[in-house]
Design a protein around this nucleic acid. Structure first.
Lengths: 117, 117
DNA sequence: TTTCTTTATCGTATCTTTACGATAAATATA
DNA sequence: TATATTTATCGTAAAGATACGATAAAGAAA
């Protein structure tokens, strides 16, 4: 039964949750930070910066690429990664939109005594 | 082996990825939006608004509560949920910090020809 | 008190994620 | 050509997430 009924939700919510999922592991956040700091990175440099094995780093990089947040090009025998700035700012805008919606909508901080019939 | 070596990453990255994980499912985003729109909600209203079973909604609500984004109080036989505005804006600030860091750090959009020795 | 309503939790099945070693593929170097 | 370097992918194991029915718990209503 549990087939993740993602299809039945709104497109907006699905989009947003997909972005969020890309950030939902410390290794991936760390990778993004590393890429920003060094501007561009050969894969091995990322591996050296993280406490996990090379194969696992490759896997996380693949997810970030699938999410569109990172671009990679082959560079001789190694491969070079960098941030996709456009996607990052798109994600930032999307999340800010959500937070605005949440802040605007909710005026109280406690629950009303509204009851159900 | 795969014990999720979350402990070995930076505190900041762990914190952020935990927030992100809370948003990493369309149902949870939808719940937050619903709470914002209606200001406060009895659980049943959320169940009616979503295409998933009551037990599953309760499970998602629990995760949002654990993440601190949502508060719940018992209201007679039912329970009433609302957003934790303080936590939401804290999360927003944290994410904005990350995005600034990413935008500031990365000046190029393509990979340099830097090579590894 | 008995019954109904509402929600949380339990048990369970299935899919997904995380992690790593081993290996393949591609390129550089000797 | 043979060897070393670098990275992606495969196979696999374990943990986690997702989903739901059934049931328990707590109060309201009859």
């Amino acid at each position: 039964m549990p087939v993740t009924k993602t299809e039945e939700f709104g497109t907006k919510d699905v989009r947003l949750s997909r972005w969020a999922k890309a950030l939902a592991h410390p290794a991936r956040v760390a990778i993004l930070r590393t890429l920003a700091k060094r501007n561009a990175c050969v894969c091995g440099e990322i591996v050296d910066a993280l406490p996990i094995a090379q194969a696992t780093v490759s896997q996380h990089l693949k997810e970030l690429k699938n999410a569109g947040l990172v671009k990679g090009t082959i560079e001789g025998p190694s491969s070079c990664y960098c941030l996709n700035k456009a996607a990052v700012s798109e994600l930032a805008a999307e999340l800010n939109g959500l937070f605005e919606e949440l802040a605007d909508g909710c005026t109280s901080n406690t629950c009303s005594t509204k009851q159900r019939k």
